[in-house]
């Protein structure tokens, strides 16, 4: 298997990233390193523009000494792993019941219109993508979105405007490292 030619990902496993991966692997007994797969995929994805090319998945298999298919079957099962490029800032709106009755769909439509994308698409500059996702466990603070490691709750159109500006001005921390 290989990634579609139109997508390209530069793979860079820095010593810091490798050290973090080794730390995660150390949480499981000898011979059970496969257990570290999900946490390791999160780390690899975070360090590679939030997506996992086939080549990066193969790298994960190599690091954990498991077969590539064991990685592919996991990547395709879980929602959080992206198999093609997404925006640097991926705005994930919860659209399940409690958010839906609090106007989540309106706020998401507004965001799509503002950015000129449909759900699932990436803006031409590669900065943003918008997706609707299933319940994120913020039902009492609806509507909400997830951006990187963090939640943004009690959303309004004004808050979305502010967030998009902050992203453009590079004021947003995506990951809590």
């Amino acid at each position: 298997m290989e990634t579609l030619k139109k997508y390209h990902q530069d793979i860079n496993i820095t010593p810091e990233l490798m050290q973090r991966i080794q730390e995660l692997v150390s949480h499981y007994p000898e011979g059970k390193q496969k257990s570290a797969l999900l946490p390791v995929l999160h780390e690899l994805q975070d360090a590679h523009d939030n997506w996992l090319s086939v080549e990066l998945q193969n790298k994960a298999a190599e690091i954990l000494n498991i077969t590539p298919i064991e990685v592919y079957e996991v990547v395709t099962f879980y929602t959080m792993f992206n198999q093609k490029p997404v925006g640097k800032y991926m705005l994930e709106f919860c659209v399940t019941s409690c958010c839906a009755i609090n106007k989540a769909e309106d706020v998401m439509d507004y965001t799509c219109e503002k950015l000129g994308v449909k759900p699932g698409q990436v803006t031409a500059d590669g900065l943003f993508s918008v997706v609707g996702v299933q319940c994120l466990g913020a039902c009492g603070y609806a509507p909400m979105l997830q951006l990187g490691d963090f939640y943004h709750e009690h959303l309004t159109k004004e808050k979305v405007d502010q967030l998009i500006n902050d992203c453009k001005e590079d004021k947003i921390t995506l990951h809590d490292k």
Partner: peptide, 25 residues
């Protein structure tokens, strides 16, 4: 602490165990 990958089904205890073993839930 171990993090999942976004799957409601992993709240079912045997799916959770599968997931903790690095597999599909």
């Amino acid at each position: 602490v171990h993090c999942g990958g976004g799957a409601y089904i992993c709240g079912e205890e045997t799916a959770l165990i599968e997931s903790l073993e690095g597999k599909r839930g």
